[in-house]
Amino acid sequence: MMTLDGLRSFGADVNDGLARCMNNEAFYLKLVNMAVSGEGFAELSDALSKNDLKSAFEAAHKLKGVFANLSLTPLYKPTNELTELLRHETPGDYQALLNEILAQKARLEAL
C-alpha cells in the first residue's frame, strides 16, 4: 500500500507534488499509481530496443513531464538525463539510464 511517507522515503518531493494536487492526498496517490502503471515505460524500452531514437525521445519527454509534475525526483533525474541525450541523439549509454529508470520504477512499485 503506497503512502505519503513511503513516497518520502523513496525520495519524492511529496509536499511539492501534493501542492499541485490542491493538497488532495488521495488524488496525488492516485496519479502516482497511474504514472507507475502507465504505458510510457514500455514505449521507451521498446523504442530503444529498436534504436528508434525519435520515438524514444518522445516517450522519455512525456515521462519526464509526468515525473516532474508529481515530483518523483528519483525517476525524474535519469529520465531528464536520457531525454537530453536523445534530444540531439547524443551518443551515450541509453541502456544504463533506462535500467536506472526501470529500477526506480520497481522501487516505487515495491512500496
Binding site: R20, C21, M22, M34, A35, K62
Partner: peptide, 16 residues
C-alpha cells in the same frame, strides 16, 4: 494533453 496524469492534475486545479 495526451498524458492522463497531467490532464487530471490540470483538471483538478481548474475545476475549482
Amino acid at each position: 494533453e495526451d498524458e492522463q496524469v497531467n490532464r487530471e492534475m490540470l483538471g483538478l486545479m481548474l475545476s475549482a
